[in-house]
């Protein structure tokens, strides 16, 4: 239980729809075997020019982005590849929440598992946020009450799967829950013996 899950921040807007995880972290950065270190490459090919210099037109390179912990983006954010690296890159770039009107399924699950909050708002609220000048606008995220306070002070509710919310607020995780289910898993396995054995490689020619 901590105030970690209530925070106020400026936000960065990315008014594009269907932002895919290849844009969030291009594949050539996926050779890492770590979870950390990807932040500088978040949105790499939008953020840097071919020669490696920062693209000043891209929002993350602008003053407004400094210290912003919330990203606001168009609908269907995180579509495409299942790469969890996309979430690690966004977290590494300092983001703690992404606001959109919809998220791709796998991205949403990956984000929740890593404490990056995917916050779904209505298309109208999203349009308002994307239209507003960002430099001095703040939002407040409160996971305990599942409310998002908009720059004009209005509170809107957002849905977080109850179990994900419980895990985040109580600093536990899905792995612990699954390990606790091991008796049930063992009895399932007794009733459903495996029909395959991947270690048996019959010759195939």
């Amino acid at each position: 239980m901590s105030s970690h899950w209530t925070f106020t921040s400026t936000y960065v807007t990315l008014p594009r729809e269907n932002v895919d995880t290849d844009q969030i972290i291009p594949a050539r950065f996926l050779t890492t075997t770590d979870r950390v270190g990807l932040g500088p490459h978040a949105f790499n090919d939008w953020r840097y020019r071919a020669d490696g210099s920062p693209n000043e037109d891209f929002i993350l390179n602008q003053e407004a982005a400094r210290n912003a912990e919330v990203l606001v983006a168009g609908h269907n954010f995180g579509c495409g590849s299942s790469r969890e690296h996309a979430v690690w890159a966004l977290a590494g770039a300092g983001f703690r929440a992404v606001i959109s009107s919809s998220f791709a399924d796998i991205f949403r699950g990956n984000a929740l598992g890593n404490g990056l909050l995917p916050i779904v708002v209505t298309p109208d609220t999203l349009a308002d946020l994307l239209a507003r000048p960002v430099a001095d606008s703040h939002v407040t995220v409160n996971l305990e009450t599942s409310t998002l306070t908009l720059p004009d002070g209005e509170d809107v509710h957002f849905d977080v799967p109850p179990f994900s919310r419980y895990c985040l607020l109580n600093d536990t995780n899905e792995m612990s829950f699954l390990l606790d289910a091991s008796d049930d898993i063992a009895s399932y396995e007794m009733k459903h013996p495996a029909s395959i054995d991947t270690s048996q490689h019959a010759a195939t020619a």
Partner: peptide
């Protein structure tokens, strides 16, 4: 995702 890969490996 990779966190779930860990879940499946372990459980």
């Amino acid at each position: 995702g990779t966190s779930q890969v860990a879940h499946v490996l372990a459980t």
